[in-house]
């Protein structure tokens, strides 16, 4: 398994796109670059794992988990809300292609293909959401463990 230039290019493209996306939401300064780097990580993981032959749903789940961890760490470090980083980083996983081709088969009257692609889109959305859910739950549990000893000491 080697890192090809294609992976870095797709990462770089999403980085550029994420900068644009971040500007639309008025993310400023270092936060903008930190958030966009999340998009780079996301697209890079996606490219590497797809190359290694993992199924797409699983790739989306892992990438979204990784990006959520990244966003939580950054939010802690830079003392900013998590969504600032998460929103921009998670966008490369949005299955834009599937949505478009599902739509096209809908207007072409190819209902079988439309159904297949729409279900697949929802599966990917579910995988992304599951990644976010998982990490957020783990962090909640960790926080609740951290708080308890402090309360006992008081």
């Amino acid at each position: 398994m080697e890192i090809t230039s294609d992976m870095l290019i797709s990462g770089g493209l999403t980085f550029a796109a994420a900068i644009g996306y971040g500007i639309c939401f008025n993310i400023r300064g270092a936060n903008l670059f930190a958030a966009s780097f999340g998009a780079f990580i996301c697209a890079f993981i996606e490219a590497v794992m797809t190359e290694a032959g993992y199924p797409e749903i699983f790739v989306c789940f892992i990438a979204s988990t990784a990006v959520t961890v990244y966003s939580e760490i950054l939010a802690k470090r830079l003392r900013c809300p998590v969504p600032m980083f998460l929103i921009v980083s998670i966008i490369p996983l949005v299955p834009g292609g599937y949505i478009y081709y599902a739509m096209m088969s809908c207007i072409n009257g190819d209902l079988a293909d439309f159904g297949k692609r729409s279900v697949y889109t929802f599966e990917i959305a579910g995988a992304i959401a599951l990644g976010i859910f998982l990490v957020t739950f783990i962090i909640k549990i960790m926080k609740s463990f951290k708080k308890n000893p402090a309360k006992k000491n008081r």
């Binding site: 999403t14 796109a17 994420a18 900068i19 644009g20 500007i23 639309c24």
Partner: peptide, 23 residues
Amino acid sequence: PVYGRYSIIAAYFLSASAYAMFF
């Protein structure tokens, strides 16, 4: 501060074109 009108237009251009290449 918020980004100016033209920066946002440029951001839309950048975002859309980078994603077109990504896909």
